[in-house]
Design a protein around this nucleic acid. Structure first.
Length: 422
RNA sequence: GUGGGCGUAGCUCAGCUGGUCAGAGCGCCAGGUUGUGGCCCUGGAGGUCGAGGGUUCAAAUCCCUCCGUUCACCCCA
C-alpha cells in the first residue's frame, strides 16, 4: 500500500456511512424540537478569528491548528472548533438585528493537529448549538438537556453531566489572584502546572497529577469567589435543571480550555471511552460576540464529538441490525436475456423497489449465493424457460418458496408479497 | 511534542531460543446439482513477512534507523 489516509484521518466506508446518516438525521430531528436552525460556515477562516476567540495562550491556538498562507498571503486556519466561526457569521450578517434570540446549530468536520488516540482524530466531526442574545440562566439550563435528551434518544447510557461556574472576568480575577498567592511558592507542582500558574492559574485545578491534586486539595473553590450576580446565575441555572429532572454533578474543579467561557461551564462524560471520556463540552460566553466585533451580546452553547458518540454506541451494540439489504436481486441465466433483465430491473426501480440488477451472468448457484450475501428479500430469476412463457420466477429467500409470475405483474406481485410474512 | 505496545494473506492471528517458517481460522472464488442460497465436503487464488540498512554460510526470526499504527501523558469533542 503506497498512499494511505493522512495520520489522524479516516475513510467512512459504506457500512459506516449508514451509521453517520442515522446519527446526523437524529441530531437534526431532536434539534428541530428545540427550535435550533442549522448554520453552515466555511471549514477555514482567517487565523485571527481563532486567536482572538479561543485565546492565544490556549494549547489549541499555540500548537494544534492547521494554519497556512494562501496565494494572496493571507493566513488561514482549518477550523479547530465551531463556536468562533458561528459567532463570526452571526456578527458578519448582523443576525442580532433580527431581534430577539438566535438559536443555531452546526455539524461538520473540525481539525486539530494532535497525536491521535482512542476517540481522538486530526479531522473529526462535531455538532453543537449556540443560543445567542440572552443572559438568562434559563438559556444555560435549556442548552444542557438539548444534549442530554439527544443522547437519550440515541440510546446512550452511563452518561454524567458535570457542571461548574467559573464566574465573570471580575470575580475570576480575584480568584486567580488568590490561587496564585497560595500556590506560587510551591516548588512541588508539576512542570505544566508551574506554567499554568503563570498563564491561567485556574487551569491547574484539573491537573491529573496525584501530587498536584494533593497540593491543591484544600484550595478554595471558584464558586466561593463568585460575585453576587454570578452566584445568583448559578443558583438559578441549577434550580431550573432540578425542576426539569436533568441530573448533573457540581464539579468545582471543572474548568475548560477556551478563554471565551464565562460563568457556566459543563461537560458530559462517558466512562467507556478511556482517557478521552468527554462526549460534550460547553458553556456560556458572554463577551465573545463583542470580541469578534459585534455588540455586547451574551451566548451559551456546547459542542459534541461525533466519533466519540459512534464509538460508544458501537460498544453498546447499537449497530448490530444496520444493513442496506436490497428488496430484489435480479438473476439472469443467459447472456441473450441481458437486455430483458436490464429492462426488468429498471422497471422495478421505477416502481420504488430497491433492486440489484444482474451485471454478470454466472451460474444460478453463484448468483443465488451472492443474493444471499446481500440479504435480499427476493430473487427474480430470468431464464429461458420462464421467458418463453413471458414469465419470471420469484423466489422468497427467507423460506425458499418460489412462484412463476407473468412479467407484467412481477412488481405488483412483489409488493403484495412484501407486506406478508416471512 | 514525550513515553510504552504492536506492524506476517482481505480480516483475526500463530510462527520469532536464526536453517522445509511462509502457516491456521474466517472471508473470497470454483466444484460436489442438467437452472436453485444458507449447512457440509473438496479444491483454488491471494503475502516484496511495514520500509531501508547491518550481523551471518543462512533472517519473518538478532541489531540499528525510519515509517505506520495503537494506548497513555499533554490537551480536548
Amino acid at each position: 500500500m503506497k498512499i494511505t489516509a493522512p495520520r489522524g484521518t479516516f475513510d467512512i466506508l459504506p457500512e459506516d456511512a449508514l451509521r453517520w446518516h442515522w446519527l446526523e438525521a437524529t441530531i437534526r430531528r431532536i434539534f428541530g424540537y428545540y427550535g435550533y436552525q442549522e448554520i453552515r460556515t466555511p471549514v477555514f477562516e482567517h487565523t485571527e478569528l481563532f486567536q482572538r476567540g479561543i485565546g492565544t495562550a490556549t494549547d489549541i491556538v499555540e500548537k494544534e491548528m492547521y494554519t497556512f498562507n494562501d496565494k494572496g498571503g493571507r493566513s488561514l486556519t482549518l477550523r479547530p472548533e465551531g463556536t468562533a466561526p458561528v459567532v463570526r457569521s452571526y456578527v458578519e450578517h448582523k443576525l442580532y438585528s433580527r431581534g430577539g434570540i438566535t438559536k443555531l446549530f452546526y455539524m461538520g468536520p473540525m481539525f486539530r493537529q494532535e497525536r491521535p488516540q482512542a476517540g481522538r482524530f486530526r479531522q473529526f466531526h462535531q455538532f453543537g448549538v449556540e443560543l445567542l442574545g440572552t443572559e438568562s440562566p434559563l438559556a444555560d439550563a435549556e442548552v444542557i438537556p438539548v444534549a442530554v435528551e439527544l443522547y437519550k434518544e440515541l440510546g446512550l447510557t452511563d452518561l454524567e453531566v458535570l457542571l461548574n461556574s467559573i464566574g465573570c472576568p471580575a470575580c475570576r480575577e480575584e480568584y486567580q489572584k488568590e490561587l496564585f498567592s497560595r500556590l506560587s511558592s510551591l516548588r512541588e507542582l508539576c512542570v505544566s502546572c508551574q506554567q499554568r500558574l503563570q498563564k491561567n492559574p485556574m487551569r491547574l485545578l484539573d491537573c491529573k497529577n496525584p501530587r498536584c491534586r494533593e497540593l491543591t486539595e484544600d484550595v478554595p473553590q471558584v464558586t466561593d469567589y463568585l460575585c453576587p450576580a454570578c452566584s445568583e446565575h448559578l443558583e438559578k441555572t441549577l434550580s431550573f435543571l432540578d425542576r426539569a429532572g436533568i441530573g448533573y454533578r457540581l464539579e468545582p474543579r471543572l474548568v475548560r480550555g477556551f478563554d471565551y467561557y464565562t460563568r457556566t461551564v459543563f461537560e458530559v462524560i462517558n466512562s467507556g471511552l478511556g482517557a478521552q471520556n468527554a462526549v460534550c463540552g460547553g458553556g456560556r460566553y458572554d463577551h465573545l460576540v463583542e470580541e469578534c466585533g459585534g455588540p455586547p451580546m451574551p451566548g451559551v452553547g456546547f459542542a459534541s464529538g461525533m466519533e466519540r458518540l459512534l464509538l460508544t454506541l458501537e460498544q453498546q451494540g447499537k449497530f448490530a441490525g444496520f444493513s442496506s439489504a436490497p428488496q430484489v436481486v435480479l438473476v439472469v441465466l443467459d447472456e441473450k436475456l441481458a437486455a430483458d433483465g436490464f429492462e426488468l430491473a429498471t422497471g422495478f426501480r421505477r416502481e420504488g423497489i430497491t433492486t440489484e440488477s444482474c451485471l454478470e451472468v454466472k451460474s444460478l448457484k453463484a448468483q443465488l449465493r451472492a443474493a444471499d450475501k446481500l440479504q435480499a428479500k427476493f430473487v427474480v430469476i430470468l431464464g429461458e424457460d420462464e421467458w418463453k412463457d413471458g414469465q419470471v420466477s420469484v423466489r422468497r429467500m427467507a423460506d425458499g418458496k418460489q412462484w412463476r409470475v407473468d412479467r407484467e405483474e412481477v412488481s405488483r406481485f412483489i409488493k403484495d408479497l412484501s407486506g406478508r410474512e416471512p
